[in-house]
Computed example of a mutant assay.
Amino acid sequence: MQNIKSLGIFGGTFDPIHYGHLIAAECARQEFGLERVIFLPAARPPHKNENNILDAGHRLHMVHLAIVGNPAFNLSTLEIERQGPSYTIDSIEYFRSRFPRTEIYFIMGMDSLLIFGSWKEYQRLAGLCRFIVCTRPGYVMDKNNPSLADLPDVLWDNLRALQIPGLDISSSDIRQRVRHGAAIKYLLPSAVEEYIHREGLYR
């Protein structure tokens, strides 16, 4: 991977990973010509209650099951192995040092962009890589939108919007469905569904 020209980093808790994540990653790969997309599960997301997050080992295994069939997808344990909270700027600096000649894209959803100003060293982070923001079809990122107005100019220079099919799938909904005994088939890969049921997760 050392000689690749473009790399996507897809961070998240993936609790659990589902088809919405996979479609976003594949659309980003195709649209921006990414040679690899690295899925980067967080250990301790600063904006979430870590007591409500599934054990990292289970989440890593589910991501592996979900992406094993796509040779362009890779799994990184960087944030799981690192001590302390998972900060995006630390991970981007790591990948920049490892791939100094590679164009790095951080893939995220609109919900992450809305709280970008609360991220660690967000103003410096904004200039370290490009950002692919996945949105629903028809949504336009407007710099004059009050909820986005405080984002630094360098971030706007590095933002790339990606409209993906509007699948209404969320990890929180899947967890709730499992707790209530509802079906989750076709919301995530069958191997992940089987793993959740076999291990008794989210009950």
Rank of each mutant, 00 (worst) to 15 (best):
G84E: 04
Y87W: 06
S91I: 08
E93D: 13
N74W: 03
D90L: 11
L75A: 11
I89G: 10
G127P: 05
G109S: 06
T135M: 09
T102S: 11
K120R: 15
F106H: 03
I92C: 06
T88R: 07
R98I: 01
F95T: 02
D90T: 12
K120Y: 14
Y105K: 02
S97K: 14
Y105G: 01
F73C: 06
S118R: 14
F106Y: 15
S112V: 04
R130Y: 09
F131V: 02
K120L: 13
P85N: 07
N74C: 14
G117R: 11
K120W: 07
R130P: 02
L114D: 02
V133K: 00
D90E: 14
E103S: 15
E93Y: 06
S91N: 08
F99M: 10
L114V: 13
R98V: 03
S76M: 09
V133H: 01
G84R: 09
I92F: 06
V133F: 00
F106V: 05
G109N: 04
S86F: 13
F116G: 00
S118W: 02
S112P: 02
R101Q: 12
T102R: 10
R130G: 06
K120H: 15
Y122V: 08
A126G: 13
L128R: 12
I132R: 01
R98K: 06
G127H: 08
E93R: 15
F95M: 07
L75M: 10
G117E: 13
S86L: 14
E121L: 08
T102A: 10
F131L: 02
Q123L: 05
S112C: 11
C129Q: 06
M108C: 11
D111F: 01
L75V: 07
V133L: 00
I92H: 07
L75R: 11
Y105L: 04
Y105H: 11
M110C: 03
G127Q: 08
Q83E: 15
G117Q: 12
S97N: 14
R124I: 14
V133C: 00
I104T: 03
F131D: 00
F73P: 04
C129V: 09
L113T: 12
G127A: 15
R82M: 07
T77A: 15
P85S: 09
F106D: 00
W119E: 11
M108Y: 03
Y122F: 15
E79L: 11
I107Q: 01
E79K: 12
Y87H: 07
F99N: 08
T77V: 12
R101W: 07
